[in-house]
């Protein structure tokens, strides 16, 4: 177990290094010149050279990278040329919103998908199974930028069940109204996950139920319900977990769309704004943090594997 985790941790460090490389050099491919943005109407060749020198932008790209990396390792992501705010504080304000959004959306997704799958496998290809398959696929087919306005129309404009866009309340200010504002965006995000989790768990459960150890469990006199929950669910949840790891990573990107549409001041909102303002220091910081978060989530999933299935860490 310790050896397995040590191996995963070593891989984690290597991956983070490449992520930082990618972040830095890809962001430098973006069009726009920070000196121009800062100077605005005062831009001339002399002033631009002055600013470039001040910011270290006249040095070779590799040198810039290592200076940046050194700062990052000290917890300093730089300072925005545009807003003069430190990138770390921008992220510290925005990131919890994404985190909360993803967590709530995943709670919704699992709370819907797992009971659906457990009910469907009682009669594979029965009526319930077919309807929930069709229903969940319909959810997958609807992209967030369609679902979000429709849900806003239904639940915020027409019925006032949930607050509309741009009504974010910080968690620290009022817990319940914060949760209340987050449910609608989280729901939009959850729809795509539900079908993935439902289909994976359903298929894995059906194949697990063919195993000898399920027959053995039946021959002990256990009830069907107990067999499903105690014997079939755990060995069937490996691919569910793996896909959740990958899915949550892409959800952070998906959250950007939802945040922008529903005017939630999360990372996606901040990222789109900084791209529009050529604020590449902030862009770099946000992309790095998101990438590290995605890698971290997958590391966490690797660790969960060892808990769910003891066979994994032995091999």
């Amino acid at each position: 177990m310790a050896k397995y985790l040590a191996k995963r941790a070593a891989a984690f460090v290597v991956i983070i290094f490449f992520v930082s490389l990618g972040t830095f050099f890809l962001v430098h491919l973006l069009p726009g010149n920070p000196a121009l943005t800062i100077l605005g109407p005062n831009a001339n060749a002399h002033n631009i050279a002055l600013i470039d020198k001040q910011l270290g932008l006249n040095r070779p790209l590799w040198t810039q990278y290592f200076i940046w990396l050194g700062n990052v390792l000290h917890g300093n992501l730089g300072q925005s040329f545009v807003t003069r705010e430190s990138v770390v504080s921008t992220i510290a304000h925005a990131f919890p919103i994404d985190l909360e959004l993803v967590v709530i959306s995943q709670i919704i997704a699992f709370a819907v998908a797992v009971p659906l799958a457990l009910t469907a496998v009682r009669k594979p290809n029965g009526r319930f199974d077919r309807y929930s398959t069709a229903g969940t696929f319909a959810m997958l087919a609807m992209p967030p930028f369609i679902v979000a306005p429709v849900l806003v129309l239904l639940f915020a404009v027409n019925t006032h069940i949930f607050p509309g866009p741009a009504s974010y309340v910080p968690l620290a200010q009022n817990f319940w109204s914060n949760i209340h504002t987050m449910i609608l965006p989280a729901l939009v995000l959850a729809l795509g996950s539900i079908v993935i989790y439902y289909r994976l768990l359903r298929n894995d459960l059906i194949s697990t139920l063919q195993e000898d150890f399920i027959l053995m469990a039946r021959s002990k006199g256990l009830s069907d319900r107990r067999i499903l929950l105690r014997h079939a669910l755990r060995p069937s949840s490996i691919s569910l977990l793996a896909s959740a790891g990958i899915n949550i990573g892409s959800l952070i990107a998906g959250a950007f769309v939802v945040e922008y549409l529903l005017q939630l001041p999360g990372l996606g909102y901040a990222l789109v704004n900084s791209i529009n303002q050529d604020d590449y220091v902030t862009v770099q910081g946000i992309v790095l943090v998101v990438a590290v978060a995605v890698v971290l989530i997958n590391f966490l999933v690797d660790f969960l594997f060892t808990i769910v299935d003891p066979r994994i860490s032995r091999d």
Partner: peptide
Amino acid sequence: MAMIFQDPMTALNPVM
């Protein structure tokens, strides 16, 4: 009444 199955490799729940 109880039953013993042929393959002890597959008849025990591997994650319990």
